[in-house]
Design a protein around this nucleic acid. Structure first.
Lengths: 219, 219
DNA sequence: GACGAAAGTTAGCAGCTCTCACATATATTT
DNA sequence: AAATATATGTGAGAGCTGCTAACTTTCGTC
């Protein structure tokens, strides 16, 4: 809790100011700490089981301090979502890059990364796709959402050798995403259920990818 | 000790007991009124934008009255979810029954009913599949969820002429559900997005159903 | 060093959840 | 029909939360 609080000499002089994205005034980078705390709370207590006061408590500041960095409780949540979307997209890109460009495995790997993320952080995953209020005034989140979708589109486009803007590519990418999205939600919703427990993700995703991407030869 | 099963139907003797589903003690059937109020609030203000106090206000009772019918705010939400699941299942069954048994259209119609529900009541839909706390202690909700899944399974089983317990039937039904579930979520998440707006639900669902159910001849 | 802005504090209001003691209407028993 | 038990309502209140206001401290910059 209190390890990096007494960084009185700002590490700005240090050339290795690696992590802190924003120089700390008094304490540390409270903004990032709050987001981390909220992410933790969301993950353990559910999307609506967090409170700004508790997050502030965990960060070791007063309950009014967060409002110097976020105007709303919703804005904190948006911060968590934004950060999570960055990680999700990165994971998807890593998954795609781990296989031969244009291969079916590359497409399936994108889906696998998606499912893995949902399994690893179900609370955050639900939050990302459950934000209703605040979503209107958040063009950056919409852009990041499209960015994630873009990874799928890119994988499909590469496989087909078509531009990402192609209508068929878009349609098939949407089908894939819809499938993976649904599977992710169902798999975290009913952990004890029969059907999902018996499914091996990779086999499942490969089958799906093949089914959706196969008919291109005919078209 | 089944607190919510007091459908004693005392008005059975009354021939003109038209509207009131449950005889009123003091006011009306507060329980149902509260659930309706909460459903309305969830639909308009989002899943976490409701309050027991506001629901009580709308029902015209004091803010303590709801706690005579529900022990928690979560229990009210569970009541809303339970009621919504009943309607969802009914809609799915109606959709299936509207087409020839075993036809591809019957399968697609089940999915269409699902998507229609999500579109019509996105807030409630999100609530149904977003309940995290209270879900553990709610075997009735789990049972109803399986009941909904059972409709899909039944449609697939009928099409294949196989028993509902068949592993292949279960797997394909899960694939279908996963697809429709994902499409439903995406379609309510991004109303302004390009991809989903250009999709005609029925064509989409028919295509999906055909793709998933087709390879049976080979197997 | 002076000064303005950034980042933190305490105090406090309003609203929410939920409980407790009490009041009243209905159901059941005698 | 009277009495009793139970179900259903009310009001007051404790404790927590979201958020604001006014003040204080620290930092960067002239």
């Amino acid at each position: 809790m209190s390890p990096d609080q007494n960084t009185k000499d700002t590490s700005a002089s240090q050339p290795t100011a690696t992590v802190t994205p924003k120089a700390a005034y008094h304490h540390g980078d409270l903004r990032a700490q709050l987001i981390a705390a909220v992410r933790d709370l969301v993950e353990t207590h559910g999307p609506d089981g967090f409170s700004v006061a508790e997050a502030a408590r965990r960060a070791g500041v007063s309950s009014a301090a967060p409002y110097k960095h976020f105007k709303d409780r919703h804005e904190i949540l948006r911060g968590v979502v934004s950060e999570a979307m960055d990680r999700l997209r990165a994971a998807m890109e890593v998954g795609a890059a781990a296989h031969q460009a244009g291969s079916l495995d590359a497409v399936a790997a994108v889906g696998q990364a998606y499912v893995d993320f949902a399994r690893a952080e179900p609370g955050v995953f639900r939050l990302v796709f459950g934000l209703t209020e605040g979503h209107e005034n958040a063009p950056d989140l919409l852009a990041k959402g499209e960015g994630c979708f873009g990874v799928v589109v890119q994988a499909v486009a590469t496989r087909f050798g078509l531009p990402p803007g192609d209508a068929d590519v878009q349609r098939r990418a949407y089908m894939l995403w819809s499938f993976v999205h649904g599977h992710s939600f169902l798999t975290i919703d009913m952990k004890h259920k029969v059907a999902s427990a018996e499914i091996d993700d990779w086999d499942y995703l490969m089958g799906i990818s093949r089914a959706i991407l196969a008919p291109v030869a005919q078209a």
